[in-house]
Design a binder for these strands. Structure first.
Lengths: 333, 333
DNA sequence: CTGTTAGCGCCTTCAC
DNA sequence: GTGAAGGCGCTAACAG
């Protein structure tokens, strides 16, 4: 295992100072065509590759970003990650992807580890941390964008959906179709988006002169299996229900499966509306009515915002708000 | 923006040498309980956080791994990434996730950038590079595991499916059901797995005394839209076909959609078999018959193998081979 | 246009 | 048990 080729090696071989090599490598400052050419040749010949670590230590920049998501195998988050990485790549940044697996301890741990790695900024998606923990964790981080979450605090960016409106739209669509007994599968209890969508649901119900019965609002894990379980409970305890608003599409699809199991026909006996419009949603049977937001776009906007903050345009835009769009399909015509 | 708290600061404040602080931070060497306690107190009070960058420069380890995939929004790869990150996290590593978007230039670029960041090792999934480019790219990388790809070369690890067998099994299932005119939607032309699965298809056909007609084997992008296009072409040019073996489930689902468009009933007029068994596959209608392999498991095995290589157990296992399992559902009973 | 001097923050090696 | 000296590979700031 021969020693790594270093800048000093190149400098010696080319008969110049290290600084000159550095200038050529970074294309900074004016270098005469002749020496530049000679240095490039030596770099090739020796197979010199700059050390990002050393450079980072000297410049205090790493060219890396952290992306924290609950679960990358959830289509929402893999799309966010894809959109984020696309922009990051264009701008010359690399991305650390971290899954919290919905555990707050782990979320805290990955945030710490990101700061230790010296990321230039971090995107925190759907944080499940309480406000205090979140503030504390944030204090480690140089530059932050929150996705799907709000927090009263200076200097951080937000990329969010207008979740309250989204919950309202979904609910109103069902109300307009004549439903009265509408329940809400609200997702994780500590999900900010879940809370907001549920507010929207309540607001729409109230505006229609209705009040959700006890038990009509039920939290559940944001995944198919967890939702099936919750749907079974909900529908067997409340036979009066004719429609469900769901936290997201995975939950909605779980509801669809549970209905199938219970021989309840969708949409005739139970109508279902989801949130997000993941690729799966138009492929299931019945196809899912849902409130669409491009997760890919949210990911790329988040990186754009983060890079602006890193660049120091503190005074500029701090917030990107997406409006969801109702996509009507068979599950709730 | 106050200066970062450094080890020297802690040392000064605690009235010890930097080395002693280092020993406490890294829990190395014997330190008296008293000084250790005092140093910890100072660390807390000053809010000292070690710099991973500086440590990496000194130790020549970064505690980071690179993971290169074609497209993280493809469920196969998001599952691999999830499995990989799970193990990496347990072992104290962070993961750089890079998408190549099926572009070889970009694949080369991200490999370079990973080496520049000083990753301790890299996992390359479904590389689309030609052998020469691949070898060249690899030479930059300290430690490598290839997923879904083989290469004759010392010192690199492999995590692969027995793709040839998998293609054979899929095809044989259709043959056993009485199909004779079976086509293969073979995925990207430069996909190693696609080539192997196609070999298996040909082998099974041959074993049954059949020979694929010209045009029965068709390459296509590994996504739903691309597959729909290819399926339309294939089925309109070859009305004799009664069954399709597909490169993966996304391709199979595209085929399903194309059949629906063309009013061909699945499985009565056309039977379809996929590969992978992504979560979507049991949810589409008709549910997809497919050859299952746990992508999550492949991801975690890949990291385990990589860490062994990094650890230096060169002589140990170099290869993990997964056998797929036929899951029979409605699309090809 | 090019070189010199000093670190960046930490760890390794040896000495005490 | 603890400390001092030196270096990891690079760049910033100034000098010429």
């Amino acid at each position: 295992m021969s020693r790594r080729v270093t800048m000093a090696d190149v400098a010696r071989e080319a008969g110049v100072s290290q600084m000159t090599v550095s200038r050529v490598v970074n294309e900074k400052g004016d270098i005469s065509e002749a020496t530049s050419l000679r240095i490039r040749e030596v770099i090739q010949r020796l197979g010199y590759r700059p050390s990002g670590v050393a450079r980072s230590l000297a410049t205090k920049r790493t060219g890396t970003l952290g992306l924290v998501v609950p679960d990358n195998s959830n289509p929402c988050f893999s799309a966010i990650a894809r959109g984020a990485e696309h922009v990051a790549y264009q701008e010359g940044y690399s991305i650390f992807l971290c899954n919290t697996e919905e555990e707050t301890d782990r979320e805290l741990a990955v945030i710490r580890s990101l700061e230790e790695k010296g990321v230039d900024g971090t995107i925190l998606c759907s944080s499940r941390l309480g406000e205090d923990d979140l503030r504390r964790a944030i204090s480690y981080i140089p530059c932050l964008v929150l996705v799907n979450r709000r927090l009263e605090q200076e200097g951080i960016g937000f990329v969010v959906i207008d979740d309250e409106r989204s919950g309202r739209i979904a609910t109103r669509h069902l109300l307009d179709a004549g439903h009265r007994a509408i329940a809400m599968l609200a997702g994780p209890i500590n999900s900010y988006a879940g809370q907001q969508r549920t507010r929207g649901y309540r607001a729409a119900m109230q505006a229609a002169g209705l009040k959700p019965e006890d038990g009509w609002v039920l939290n559940c894990p944001p995944r198919i299996e967890g939702s099936m379980q919750a749907t079974r409970e909900l529908l067997s305890a409340h036979s009066e229900l004719t429609a469900l608003v769901c936290y997201n599409d995975l939950v909605a699809i779980g509801a669809l499966k549970a209905c199938a199991e219970m021989s309840l026909s969708v949409p005739d006996e139970i109508a279902v509306v989801g949130h997000d419009d993941i690729p799966l949603s138009e492929l299931v049977t019945p196809a899912l009515t849902t409130c669409r937001v491009s997760q890919y776009e949210m990911g790329s906007q988040a990186v754009q915002l983060l890079l602006k903050h890193i660049g120091g345009c503190e005074t500029e835009c701090h917030e990107v708000i997406f409006q969801s769009e109702l996509i009507v399909r068979a599950s709730a015509p």
